[in-house]
Amino acid sequence: MGAVACFFDEPCQRVSTALSEPDRAWLLNQAAFHLRALGRLSEAVGPMRAGLDGAVRLQDWKNAAVVASNLSELDLTLGLVSDALADAGRSVEYADRSGDAFQRLSKRTTLTDTLHQQGEREAALARFREAETMQAEFQPQYPLLYSLWGFRYCGLLLAGPERAAWRVWLARPDGRSGSVGPTRADLDEARSIASRGGMVLFMADCHLHRARLWRDRAELARARALIEHCGDWRRREELEDAERAAQTWPALEPSDRMEARLKSHLPSRTLVGAGLKPAPTTPRACASHRGGTHRLGVLDYNGGLANQLPEHRHAPSRLQSERGGRQVDHRLQPGRHQCRAGSADPAGRSGPAGQRVALSAGPGAG
């Protein structure tokens, strides 16, 4: 990434005009590829779209199809389902213009996967069958879709059995069948990774899985909110099954306690901006100092990061406290990685606005 950045007049946005247009398009795609690999997904969208526009201007239809497909996958991961569908349609159009048999069939699976995520299973199934017919013509010795394209097809075919398995789970009197301790740890790790990268679709899946495994009403509400926001109706029936089962679930679950702890740590103005009703008690702050920077962190019920507040669209809020005989100004900064209570985030990691918030102030604050 460092080597590629040397050719940009503006980091990851504007390539040096001293280079030819084909070279500029290639460098934009390289920058987007590396940003995506680094987990900086939202930053990768701009250069990838600029690279696509360059390939279209050059009428390089094969590369345009590849970039449009990559952009669709990126959109989908970020929860931009309508954008993903539009870009997937463009990838099919450009693949057809290229005349490349492999690009034509593979890019159809990108479109079908997006249709599946949107809940249009019949349309997706028809498109997968079309792609598999093209596969049989392209490689008669391998008539079935395989690799990533076959994986996508299997994901659609297994949607029904997956729903049936979850319905059996939800029908159990205690909702469990053996130890789920390792499952909780795996889901916590998945949620942490998805949250850092702004992978909204995966975050919705994590919330839904947690809700069903531990009969957690708050997690179920978060799953619906994300699914509705993204237009990701692949799990519509599973979500509705869980909501029917939730009528018999206990009223207080761990995530409710997590929200209560959020309310006890964050100032009222911050809670209002995050869409939470402030608690009647006075907010408490837990500040830390490291490297000249003061930060406020909040622990969730697992001791992990309570970092999934809704997008904060208000002006930065301040929380005043006294430390070492001087006043500290804690400023809310959307898009910064949130640290644990009592410790600072030494890496200063960042992510998309709305996924994490950090309260920081003093020398060295971003």
Rank of each mutant, 00 (worst) to 15 (best):
A3W: 11
V4F: 00
F7M: 02
R14E: 02
S16Y: 00
E21L: 02
P22Y: 00
R40Y: 02
S42H: 06
A44Q: 05
P47V: 01
R49I: 07
G54A: 06
V56R: 09
Q59W: 00
W61L: 03
W61C: 03
A65E: 03
N70A: 06
S72D: 03
L78H: 09
L78Q: 11
V81Q: 03
S82F: 09
D83M: 11
L85W: 05
A86P: 08
R97E: 06
S98W: 04
G99C: 05
A101F: 02
F102T: 13
F102S: 14
L105V: 05
D113F: 12
H116V: 07
H116A: 14
E130A: 10
E130I: 03
A131S: 05
E132I: 03
Q139N: 07
Y142C: 13
L144E: 15
Y146T: 15
S147H: 08
S147K: 08
W149V: 09
A159T: 10
A165D: 15
D174A: 06
R184A: 15
D186E: 06
E189C: 12
A190W: 06
I193L: 12
G198E: 02
V200S: 15
L201W: 07
F202T: 05
A204N: 05
D205E: 10
R210I: 15
R210W: 15
L213F: 07
R224I: 07
R235V: 09
E243Y: 01
R244L: 11
R244Y: 04
W249D: 03
L252K: 08
M258D: 12
A260W: 06
R261S: 12
H265K: 15
P267T: 04
V272E: 09
L276E: 10
T281P: 03
H289T: 07
G292P: 07
H294A: 06
R295G: 05
L299K: 08
L305M: 08
P310E: 10
A315Q: 10
A315G: 09
P316D: 07
S317E: 15
R318G: 11
R318I: 15
R318C: 14
L319N: 11
R323W: 14
G325H: 08
D329Q: 14
R340H: 14
S343W: 13
D345P: 05
G348E: 11
R349N: 10
R349A: 15
S350L: 12
G351Q: 06
R356K: 11
R356M: 13
V357P: 07
A358F: 04
S360W: 06
G366V: 14
